[in-house]
Every structure is written in structure tokens, then in C-alpha cells.
Simulated assay, not measured.
Amino acid sequence: MPLKTFFKEFGVFLGEKESLLDKHYQHVAEKIELHWGYDEFYPFIDKLLVDCRDRKRVGFPIEVALEITELHNIHERLYPPRNKN
């Protein structure tokens, strides 16, 4: 299912535009759906946005990074991270 349909708030963010994650990064979109609502979402998204490896990754285009960031923001509002203390 497209992210825009799966997450109502994300559909509002995109408006009439198609999700670039769905269009060009289907494997990432599927993993976002899989992790949605779980604590594992946060480390997964962090790894997408921050390269902690050998710096040989090209990274996402800015428009895709903005989609990922918006999904993070929506998830944080709906499922605030639990304190691990």
C-alpha cells in the first residue's frame, strides 16, 4: 500500500504529489510500514538519515530526506518514544 494511503497525515503533507519513497525506494517504504508504531522505528529512521558508516553512501535526494523527516515527525506525534531510563 502506498505510504500516502497508509498514513493519512503523510497524505496531507504530500497533497497531490506522489511519494518519492514509494516511487523510487519501495524497499525503504516497506520497511517504514513494517516498523511503524514500534520503538524500532526510531533507530531505523535515524540510520536512514545519518550515515555512520564509511561515508561512501551517496544519500537520498533532499526531497526524499524531507519525506523521511516528515514521517519521523508524524510517528513521533502519534507514538512518542519511550524513555529507556
Rank of each mutant, 00 (worst) to 15 (best):
A65F: 01
W36S: 15
K4C: 08
P61L: 07
N85Q: 11
L78W: 05
L71A: 06
L66C: 12
P61E: 11
F6M: 06
W36V: 13
W36N: 13
N73M: 11
V64K: 01
Y42N: 11
D39L: 13
Y79G: 09
K84I: 13
M1T: 15
P43I: 11
E16L: 01
W36M: 15
F7L: 14
V58W: 00
E9L: 05
E18S: 11
L34S: 15
I32V: 15
E18R: 10
E63Q: 14
F60K: 02
E16S: 08
L49C: 03
L34K: 15
I45S: 03
S19C: 02
Y42S: 10
P43C: 12
V28T: 13
D51M: 00
P81W: 01
K17T: 08
L48F: 01
K31C: 12
Y42C: 13
G37M: 14
P81Y: 04
Y42L: 09
L78D: 04
K8D: 11
K23S: 11
S19V: 03
E30K: 15
E16K: 06
E76Q: 08
L78V: 03
E76L: 05
I45Y: 00
F13Y: 14
H24M: 09
V64R: 07
Y25G: 06
Y79L: 05
K31G: 05
N85S: 12
C52S: 03
F6V: 05
R82Y: 04
K84L: 12
L49V: 06
K8P: 04
L3H: 08
F10I: 05
D46I: 05
R82T: 10
M1G: 14
P2T: 07
G11V: 00
H24W: 07
N73P: 00
H24T: 07
G59H: 05
L3A: 10
L78H: 08
H35N: 15
H72C: 04
F44G: 07
E67I: 09
Y79R: 04
K31F: 11
I74N: 06
E33K: 15
N85M: 09
H24S: 11
G15V: 02
N83K: 13
E76R: 13
E70G: 00
H24F: 13
V50C: 00
D46M: 07
D54N: 11
K84H: 11
A65Y: 03
A29T: 09
F44Y: 15
D46Q: 12
V64I: 12
L3N: 07
L49I: 06
L71F: 03
E18K: 11
H27E: 12
D39E: 15
P80E: 04
F13S: 02
I62M: 08
L66V: 08
T5I: 08
H24K: 10
E16D: 10
L21K: 04
R77A: 09
S19Y: 03
M1Q: 12
Q26N: 08
I32C: 10
E18C: 03
S19K: 01
V50G: 01
H72P: 00
L14H: 03
E40R: 14
H75S: 05
F60E: 07
I32G: 09
H72M: 08
F44Q: 09
R55M: 02
I45H: 03
L48W: 01
N73E: 10
K8L: 01
V58M: 01
Y25H: 14
K56H: 04
I32H: 07
L49D: 02
Y38N: 15
L71C: 05
A29V: 11
F41K: 09
V28Q: 09
K8A: 11
P81L: 04
I62A: 13
F41N: 12
